[in-house]
Simulated scan of single mutants.
Amino acid sequence: MENLSNLIAKSANGTEIQVSLIPLKKMQNTRNGLKSIEVGKRVLLQSGIVVDLNLDGRTFYTELNQLFKFNFKIC
Score class of each variant (00 low, 15 high):
Met1Glu: 12
Met1Thr: 14
Met1Tyr: 14
Asn3Pro: 10
Asn3Lys: 13
Leu4Met: 14
Ser5Pro: 09
Ser5Gln: 07
Asn6Tyr: 05
Ile8Asn: 04
Ile8Gln: 04
Ile8Leu: 09
Ile8Ser: 13
Ile8Gly: 00
Ala9Lys: 04
Ala9Asn: 11
Ala9Trp: 03
Lys10Arg: 14
Lys10Asn: 10
Ser11Ala: 11
Ser11Asp: 13
Ala12Gln: 15
Ala12Lys: 15
Asn13Pro: 03
Asn13Thr: 13
Gly14Arg: 08
Thr15Val: 11
Thr15Asn: 08
Thr15Gln: 06
Thr15Gly: 00
Thr15Trp: 01
Glu16Gly: 03
Glu16Tyr: 09
Gln18Phe: 01
Val19Phe: 00
Val19Pro: 02
Ser20Thr: 06
Ser20Ile: 03
Ser20Val: 01
Leu21Asn: 02
Ile22Ala: 06
Pro23Cys: 04
Pro23Tyr: 03
Leu24His: 11
Lys25Ile: 15
Lys26Glu: 15
Asn29Pro: 05
Thr30Leu: 10
Thr30His: 02
Thr30Phe: 01
Arg31Ala: 15
Arg31Gly: 14
Arg31Lys: 14
Asn32Val: 07
Gly33Glu: 02
Gly33Ile: 07
Gly33Tyr: 03
Gly33Thr: 02
Leu34Gly: 10
Leu34Gln: 11
Lys35Val: 15
Lys35Phe: 09
Ser36Trp: 05
Ile37Asp: 05
Glu38Asn: 09
Glu38Ser: 06
Glu38Pro: 07
Val39His: 08
Gly40Tyr: 05
Lys41Ala: 08
Lys41His: 07
Arg42Trp: 00
Arg42Met: 08
Val43Phe: 03
Leu44Met: 13
Leu45Pro: 03
Gln46Thr: 13
Gly48Thr: 05
Gly48Lys: 02
Ile49Leu: 06
Val51Cys: 05
Asp52Glu: 14
Asp52Leu: 05
Leu53Gly: 02
Leu53Tyr: 00
Asn54Met: 08
Leu55Tyr: 10
Asp56Pro: 09
Asp56Thr: 08
Asp56Gly: 03
Arg58Gln: 09
Thr59Trp: 01
Thr59Arg: 01
Phe60Glu: 00
Phe60Trp: 02
Tyr61Ile: 06
Thr62Asn: 00
Thr62Phe: 01
Thr62Ala: 01
Thr62Glu: 01
Leu64Ile: 12
Leu64Glu: 11
Asn65Ala: 07
Asn65Arg: 11
Asn65Tyr: 12
Gln66Trp: 03
Gln66Tyr: 02
Leu67Thr: 06
Lys69Gly: 08
Lys69Cys: 10
Lys69Pro: 01
Lys69Gln: 14
Asn71Val: 00
Lys73Tyr: 06
Ile74Gln: 07
Ile74Pro: 03
Ile74Leu: 06
Cys75Trp: 06
Cys75Asp: 14
Cys75Arg: 08
